[in-house]
Design a protein around this nucleic acid. Structure first.
Lengths: 121, 121
DNA sequence: CAGTATCCTTCAGGATACTG
DNA sequence: CAGTATCCTGAAGGATACTG
């Protein structure tokens, strides 16, 4: 990550930060459904294992995108919420969702044409 | 890719498409500097090997993001350029670059604080 | 509940060499 | 020049089991 190549491209750093595996669904879930406990989050995401979820959450906490709150009770309760910094990504996500809605069908068509052209060989 | 989890998150599909490794610098280079030959592109990116560059370009051509033009000459000449669909991502990229400029410093500070807090244990 | 601790697999991506 | 063909490695991520 962060090779010389991406130095020139101003988008690459934020890609490493925000669009690495699992960060998008985690951020989106926290933004959409608010504060979540660990297990709630795990169930919301659906297929992520506790180990990997912990890794991502730690990284995102370190990056200041999520806030972890530990309640020393029995049984223990931990809550994760999106930070202001994380929330500042919401317009970016909305922009991407817009692009998606308008252009993903075009991508699908392009793929079909490409594959069809390949058949002819 | 494209597990059940990301189904709920409307951003995930476009992430797989646009923000997988190397696609960002490639798109950015083509958008910024216009039509490029294979070797020019390789040099512009800096560290990518021909094999991987070919893989990414094929994928992006299939997805309709770049256009490949083959000139049957000796020696052969191939040019890549960004498509209209690819160009439609420019505002998204600009948006990300803006976010980056405003918020990456905050991320850096968050990391330092997090690491400093860890030292205290 | 909220994680850790291990073990294991896979596969994207790099190194290198070769071709039409 | 514009790729292909192989070989290979590392590191992310999954499966599983265990703990305070």
């Amino acid at each position: 990550m962060g090779g010389d190549s991406e130095q020139a491209c101003p988008v690459s750093p934020v890609v490493d930060l925000v669009f690495s595996r699992w960060t998008t669904p985690i951020l989106w879930t926290l933004n959409e459904f608010g504060r979540q406990r660990f297990v709630e989050l795990q169930r919301a995401i659906g297929t992520i294992t506790p180990k990997v979820l912990t890794q991502r959450l730690r990284q995102m906490e370190r990056d200041g995108l999520v806030v972890r709150t530990y309640h020393p009770e029995v049984p223990p309760r931990v809550e994760y919420e999106i930070s202001d910094l994380g929330r500042s990504l919401a317009p970016v996500f909305a922009h991407l969702a817009d692009w998606s809605a308008q252009n993903l069908p075009k991508v699908e068509r392009a793929r079909q044409e490409f594959d069809a052209a390949g058949e002819t060989r």
